[in-house]
Write a protein that binds this DNA or RNA. Structure first.
Lengths: 339, 339
DNA sequence: AATTGGCACTCGTCAGCATCGAGTGCCAAG
DNA sequence: CTTGGCACTCGATGCTGACGAGTGCCAATT
């Protein structure tokens, strides 16, 4: 009974603080929520919640504000995931459905997510490691320069240019191309390294330099580093918090400019399904210690592919944000599946 | 003599204001610059400059601040383009030289430019309209879905997926592919529309739907809209001005999120060479009326290709920024040429 | 044992007010 | 045309006191 109400008080504090962005006091609380007890009682509960580290006061004689730990409890036990209305769902589906290619899907997704959550959105490109090679192409751009293009079954296209020290011979190129195709097409990206291990042995010694250069480029294309691709959007939403609370936007913007950081944020997601929330210092990125990150994985069929999510202030509408992230992830999966 | 000194005063005001971000008064001016006259004289000049609309005072009894018109005069007649040091030039060259492909060049350029100017940088991808088709490829992704890939001689790769209402036949696909190659390879992108005008006539009636779908996709790939590609970086520099002056960052961030806006900024550049500066309201984009945009074109060989530039507060270091933009444009041209 | 009303206390916010000083415009003299 | 002098403006700064939201504690009540 007592324990029960304390949690209810915490929920009320989080909800009020999220909507007003101002410390919430005992009196305001009983007025806005029908808790059935007097402010004095609430004060006792608040003192207890503060002892346990779920809330804190910015200064004596101000209301209470949730701590990161408080948000954590709120997310874990007190808040659900708010489902989107069917109108919203339809809007998402139709907007994503208009996409013409993978780039377009990613771009639309990030816009959608930013717009739906009013926060900064990030979307990772489908991971190569889980997909297969659909096509591989070699194109001569000039007499000593060529380009290798690898197309995945997800529709993702990666390219890389290769400098050759010798003149590129069309016949040789055609030969390499067809052998590459045989070796790689329909193979998973993760096995490309193995498949190419002895690839150069099939060629004459004087052709080897070119072949090795091409192999190197191919390997780089499928390497971890090249796999790192994240699009970002909605950064202007950060400015809304300009003069609110301890959210200085400079470090946040700086952190978000680093692809590595974005990938860390999206990558640290536990493999279990559903929406993941990391609050404040939980996301081990300096500069984001007063933000929360809400992510979800999306997937084609049942193989896990990549993640998307949003970054916002710790005092965000978790239920709504989680709902939006989940829904968008779901529809992206569907679109990629359908295509 | 008098006219001469007035301009000198304007220059001094702009320089001081840019470095301090505070209104500059007559006394401070004579102290920091050896103008050889008394504050009272300067005051007279200032009054004149204010009458002509080059400077203004934020409020009575504060120093003067340059107006947009003042900056314009400063840029046109008083300021040169500050050349970079040779160390800086070497750094640029080596950093850009390490790029492995076009995407990498663009990405490195935008980082470089942002870092060098401490401002928001934008870089446009080489325009398709001035380049030629090097290779064209059709790849079946599934039985009813295929992808068209167009490679330009600049190394730029564009793709688009095509849905087919009928099953895709490999033989037909090969036929279309080879005819497309014949029709388009080495042709300028601008003529692709003409080249494909009667393309479908060469095929059997029942193959036409697929062929037209492919043609449509190919045309979209080379269309204006697809040509619009700009990368952005260094947005965190905006936050430095957070509490400075009438530069609210929200509208700026919002404007910069729109590709269309970026293209307008980069596109409105007059064809004559050199660095272009647009100050305040001169760049007709709402939300950017208190920023200046410094752009330059870059080109491979002598054919004009695209633009790059930075966005910053009107009170920026024009000489330094222009120097950096010019230098980077120059080196990008060089790198693209060399590759 | 939990709840509640009462009450003293804290402390940030806000309005009012006086002071300070950087900066100006004007004028008369050089 | 330049310059020193001078009165004036007005934002910034700092102080004060009133206000009030909010707390913690305690004794009384259920």
């Amino acid at each position: 009974m007592l324990e029960e109400r304390r949690l209810e008080v915490l929920r009320a504090i989080v909800e009020d603080f999220v909507s007003t962005h101002e410390p919430v006091g005992s009196k305001a609380l009983v007025e806005r929520h029908s808790l059935g007890v007097s402010p004095a009682t609430i004060r006792n509960d608040m003192a207890a919640l503060e002892d346990e580290g779920f809330i804190t006061q910015p200064h004596t004689s101000a209301g209470r504000v949730p701590t990161d730990r408080g948000y954590r409890l709120f997310v874990d036990r007190l808040s659900g995931v708010k489902q989107l209305s069917s109108a919203e769902r339809r809007a998402i589906e139709s907007f994503l459905g208009e996409a013409v290619d993978l780039d377009d899907v990613m771009q639309r997704t990030v816009r959608l997510l930013a717009q739906a959550t009013k926060q900064v959105a990030m979307v990772q490109y489908p991971s190569l490691t889980r997909s297969r090679v659909r096509h591989i192409e070699l194109v001569a751009l000039s007499s000593t320069r060529l380009m290798i293009i690898v197309i995945a079954d997800t529709g993702r296209v990666d390219q890389r240019s290769v400098e050759s020290s010798v003149l590129v011979d069309e016949t040789l190129l055609a030969d390499i191309r067809s052998r590459l195709s045989v070796a790689l097409v329909d193979k998973p990206f993760s096995s490309v390294g193995d498949e190419l291990a002895d690839f150069d042995l099939a060629f004459e010694a004087h052709d080897r330099p070119l072949v090795t250069a091409i192999i190197a480029a191919a390997l780089e294309t499928v390497s971890e580093r090249a796999d790192e691709r994240v699009v970002l959007g909605g950064t202007s939403h950060l400015a809304r918090y300009q003069d609110a609370f301890p959210l200085a936007i400079q470090p946040v913007l700086e952190a978000l400019e680093e692809q590595v950081v974005l990938l860390r944020l999206l990558g640290e997601v536990p493999t279990d399904s559903g929406v993941t929330v990391r609050i404040g210092a939980e996301n081990s990125v300096e500069g984001l210690s007063s933000t929360s990150v809400v992510t979800a994985r999306y997937a084609r069929s049942d193989s896990s592919m990549a993640s998307l999510g949003v970054v916002g202030p710790t005092h965000m509408d978790y239920a709504g944000t989680m709902g939006a992230v989940q829904a968008v992830a779901q529809y992206v999966s569907k679109i990629l599946d359908g295509q």
